[in-house]
């Protein structure tokens, strides 16, 4: 087709992008991988070994639990919200409102949500005071600043993220399928059991994995809320980076970062496989 020379010329058009991606995306990733194996300038497995300490395993468990619990709760509630929105007029105000609000809470969240909950159930929080008035005292409790608190706050960005991620799958459900099932004799329950749920299940599972990865990688909310200890991996990385007094801490930070990347990569790979399945069915 084209001459080899012009083909190379055409490829050169990609050079700026590839160069940029290499410097700001590939280099840092590689650096993390390499540093995890280097302590004080020499090859060492010491940093990776520190991941096996009981305290680190505890933190990893906490992070997995936090991510899984909020992903499951967020996926279930979010799926229902997405469904009821999907039955409304696709160009209506309701749908625009819900998707915009979801977009803000899911992607803008971070610090802002932390303060939303400080204002709600923190020591001087509005709801704390209501409850105080009702005889339930949470104003002296620090639960909001612990793992439990993180679960509540994370759920608030997981639900909207689910709405955004799951809506396209619901839009892929053709009205003919419901009507075909109707004319073939399926009740509402039978339709969902035999058609709706099996069709949406891969998309649901994929969305759940995305939510998991999202919670697993999150840092801002936890950093703004938690001021004692590092109950999750992201905080532990920041902790290690900030601790420059101990020599091998960048190695430790890199080792934790490596652990995070690997877990998220596995999850995202599964997610993309499920996405392929979904795109074959729901388009």
């Amino acid at each position: 087709m084209a001459k080899p020379a012009s083909r190379i010329g055409a490829s050169l058009g990609l050079a700026p992008f590839l160069l940029y991606a290499a410097i700001f995306l590939i280099v840092p990733t590689v650096v993390v991988f390499v540093r995890a194996f280097i302590v004080d300038g020499a090859f060492s497995l010491e940093a990776l070994a520190s991941l096996k300490k009981a305290s680190m395993i505890e933190i990893t468990k906490n992070t997995l639990l936090l991510s899984l619990a909020t992903a499951v709760v967020g996926a279930l509630i979010g799926a229902v919200v997405a469904y009821v929105v999907s039955t409304a007029n696709p160009n209506g105000l309701l749908r625009r409102f819900v998707t915009s609000a979801s977009g803000v809470l899911a992607q803008f969240g971070g610090v802002t949500l932390a303060f939303a909950f400080i204002a709600t159930v923190g020591r001087e929080g509005v709801v704390s005071r209501w409850l105080d008035g009702a005889g339930i005292d949470i104003t002296n409790s620090t639960w909001l600043f612990s793992l439990k608190g993180l679960m509540l706050v994370y759920t608030y960005f997981q639900v909207p993220l689910m709405v955004i991620v799951f809506l396209p799958a619901l839009d892929g459900i053709r009205p003919q399928w419901r009507e075909a099932a109707d004319t073939l004799g399926a009740s509402t329950w039978q339709y969902w059991r035999h058609v709706g749920v099996p069709l949406l299940f891969p998309a649901f599972l994929g969305a759940l994995l995305l939510l998991f990865a999202n919670a697993f990688a999150a840092y801002a909310t936890a950093a703004a809320l938690v001021n004692q200890g590092s109950p999750i991996l992201a905080l532990k990385i920041a902790d290690a980076l900030g601790n420059e007094l101990l020599g091998n801490q960048t190695s430790v930070a890199s080792a934790i970062a490596l652990e995070m990347v690997l877990i998220v990569a596995v999850v995202m790979f599964a997610y993309s496989r499920l996405q392929q399945q979904t795109s074959r069915w729901l388009r």
Partner: peptide, 23 residues
């Protein structure tokens, strides 16, 4: 290009921080 563009979804921001200091 698509792979590279979507890669940041797999690499948490906190991880980028760890590797970006020299850059």
């Amino acid at each position: 290009v698509e792979f590279l563009c979507l890669l940041p979804l797999t690499i948490p921001a906190i991880v980028l921080v760890v590797g970006l200091d020299n850059v």
